[in-house]
Design a protein around this nucleic acid. Structure first.
Lengths: 185, 185
DNA sequence: GGATCGAACTTTAGGATTGAAGTCTTGAGG
DNA sequence: CCTCAAGACTTCAATCCTAAAGTTCGATCC
């Protein structure tokens, strides 16, 4: 015995299958709500995987891209301290130290002491870092445009509005409190 | 001198501010698209933080909750092998081994060799594990209901449909290929 | 002006995850 | 039977992150 027909690939069940399974185990579940929440979770996971792959092709990690984005968003001259970066990225300063080490080693940023206040450190984007950001940005926007291609302009607006209302609600309910990233999915 | 007014808290900029900053640095950016994508990312991050906090109050981690969910969704008798669990959770078998160790130590699951095929291992939900899952499930559904309270029923459906179309698109574009979770945000 | 408190990083120890190597059983041949 | 290959976990080394000490510099208070 022991055939174990070897299912083609267990994989994740369909969203509808998953919701049906939940309803079997937990009677008072609102399928509409669950659908939205599960779709959000899955979509995000898939998107992160997709970004990760494409960024890897450019030679940078998702984590590095976050840092590049944050520096660029801070505006010229693209400088921030490790502590500020950590706060904006939702990381501990310790983690920031290490990331900056690596990125400085790769030439994406420079790390120097602030001459006016030698306790502070200034992380600055290099030209190479800015170039990498630009490449990644092009890649990302292409991907995002492709992702939304099935939605008409007014659907996009409606979707954005709905998401922002959810965001506002969660910010209201969960007073942030620092905003450490805990886990995934 | 040296007032450093101590900004109330640097924090993340507003979504609109962030998009404006992007447009300054990258001319051909579609604000509508960016709004949707950024809102998705932020919403997910906030939600994970929120889940993490509430699960911590129950004494389990986000990671443990994922395992409990997967076992329950598999249906009675709530048994799966480590490899199968790893596949469904998008983890490596090595990581699964460790998680199961911990959860077995906490009494949430049992881990036994399969008597019919002694290479295999069977992870089974304990009553305590099932109870924890139920508590977490109640907590999660309450939170989710609260999250969506501002959306009328038909808006919820529309949102769910839009998300599913995006999900379908990303699954089509990104053939999964195993589905390892790469990074966060 | 020196001691002290506080701010901004860095270092250290520990947990989690990945990829690769290792172990143990099952099943197919010879 | 014995050997050998494949499958299912587990163990090992390396990476990244968090939390909790350090370190170092600056500012305030006698």
């Amino acid at each position: 015995m022991s055939d174990t027909p070897e299912r083609p690939a267990p994989q994740e069940p369909t969203l509808d299958e998953q919701i049906a399974a939940y309803q079997r185990e937990y009677r008072d579940l609102d399928p509409q709500v669950e659908k939205v929440v599960s779709a959000l979770g899955r979509l995000n996971r898939r998107m992160n995987v997709a970004y990760g792959r494409q960024l890897a092709d450019l030679g940078i990690s998702n984590a590095e891209w976050e840092v590049l984005k944050t520096l660029v968003l801070s505006g010229a001259p693209y400088r921030l301290g490790p502590g500020e970066l950590a706060k904006r990225l939702g990381l501990t300063p310790a983690a920031m130290t290490h990331r900056i080490d690596r990125m400085a080693g790769e030439g994406l940023v420079t790390r120097d002491r602030d001459e006016n206040n030698r306790v502070r450190v200034i992380v600055e984007l290099t030209d190479e870092g800015r170039t990498k950001w630009l490449e990644a940005m092009r890649m990302a926007t292409d991907f995002e445009e492709e992702l939304l291609q099935d939605l008409a302009p007014e659907e996009r607006v409606a979707l954005g509005d709905a998401l922002i209302r959810l965001l506002r609600r969660v910010e209201l309910t969960q007073p942030d409190a620092g905003g450490r990233l805990t886990d995934l999915d």
